[in-house]
Amino acid sequence: MKVYNFDEIISREGTNSLKYDAREKFFGDSNVLPLWVADMDFKTPDFIIDAIKERTEHEIFGYSFRPDSYYQAIIDWMKRRHKWDIQKEWISFSPGVVAGLTFAIETFSKPNDEVVVQPPVYFPFFDSVKGTKRKMIENPLRIKNDRYTFDFKDLESKISEKTRLLLLCNPQNPGGMVWTKEELEKLTSFCLEHKIMIISDEIHSDLIYSGHKHIPLASISEEVANNCVVLMAPSKTFNIAGFSSSLVIIPKKTNLVRYERAIGVGHLHMGNIFGTIALETAYSFGDEWLSQMLDYLWKNYLFLEEFTKSRLPKVKVMKPEATYLIWMDFREYGMKNEKLMKFTVDNAKVGLNDGGRFGTGGDGWLRINIGCPRSILEKALERLATAFG
């Protein structure tokens, strides 16, 4: 068994990296230590790099299609990792999960229809709703037993006959919740009763920590499968977001046809050669690398948890059940987010995500990315402790 080195520091500066080379634009300071953009500082797995290199030896990069082996890799991965049996005929494409989400909104609703969003949540959800001229209905999550949960009483009070869609973040970003089967069954029952279709962003579905299990929404029942769109990708899991290749799983044939018609209009259904190869290779050979990477991430989280308890006791950390994105509560410092972000950048020289961007419930919170060598995480935390101490 090969042992992977996640402590290796690889400079990303000068590679047009959004996380590193856009620091001055976003933070006004090119010297901040960036733990914000949701990609990792770990080397992309060697088996993916080798597959890409092998393809570059053929020096023609014309139009290509996705082979049967690509679909089989997805089918096998879903069976292996999530105990979910899917069919090739359910699988479609999107250049990214947010793109797929937006196409789904446009396909399964009309302008001025209502779309439910559950903040604090991944902020592109807001852009997708507003940008397609739909009306956003906020159903904020509640904190119960130190984790987020759905607020059905609030949801019941806000929907109307114009409510067409609910956007689900599963697992949840930024809180790191892995929704339980019971939680998802209650939500899907509610949506079926009220004829609300669910668009489920499951991009973090492979980044699940021990003791938790991801439930693909469409695996709950045939009825639920016919009332949802599932969006997935290996991009977060294997650090290949730059290949712009995501998958869309729609079990109901008529819904799939409608979606593919929408994405085909913009001629965005083709994808690219290297994205296809990277996705197939990741799902074919990625189990052991992922196992080791998740173990490293969990130890990073434990380091963060212990550090904040001893050096940043006013900061409360929401314990993640999934993802390398950790939700940190700075509310005891009494700063609004604009001031909190400015203080963090100016005094700690650390670039984190502004909790306010995640919507209602995000004020006073910051999101940190622990998908990096532990030495980088330690350096960032030391800076934060010095500034806030």
Rank of each mutant, 00 (worst) to 15 (best):
K309S: 11
G275D: 08
F61I: 06
K53G: 05
V117Y: 01
D21I: 04
N227R: 03
D50S: 10
I249V: 14
E161G: 10
L256M: 14
R331M: 07
A233E: 10
S246H: 05
G271F: 02
N227I: 03
V345L: 03
R383D: 04
K130R: 12
I159E: 07
M177Y: 13
R357S: 11
C191K: 02
V97Q: 03
C228T: 15
I143D: 11
V315I: 15
L256T: 09
K133E: 11
V345W: 00
A38G: 14
G356C: 05
F274M: 09
Y63P: 02
F27E: 01
V97C: 10
V317F: 05
Y63M: 14
W90F: 14
I199M: 07
E57Y: 09
D68N: 15
I137N: 04
M1K: 09
N337K: 07
N337P: 01
L184H: 02
A348P: 09
I52M: 07
V257S: 13
E288D: 15
F42C: 05
S244H: 11
V230Q: 09
H269R: 13
P216C: 11
A233S: 12
M335C: 06
F285L: 14
S245N: 15
M270E: 15
Y63H: 13
P45V: 04
T276E: 08
L325V: 08
V121T: 15
H82W: 13
N300G: 04
E161F: 12
G28T: 07
P95F: 04
W298Y: 14
I368L: 14
V32A: 00
F285G: 03
E223A: 09
L166C: 08
A233H: 10
D346P: 10
Y71P: 01
A262P: 02
M136F: 06
F150R: 00
G364N: 05
G356S: 11
G266D: 12
L192H: 10
F388I: 08
S64D: 15
G131V: 04
F150C: 03
I105S: 05
V265Q: 08
M232D: 05
T132A: 11
Q292Y: 01
P67V: 14
S92W: 09
Y71G: 02
E193W: 07
I198S: 02
F103E: 10
L325I: 11
E59G: 09
M232P: 00
M318V: 13
E138D: 14
W289I: 05
I74F: 13
Y122W: 11
E382R: 08
H267W: 10
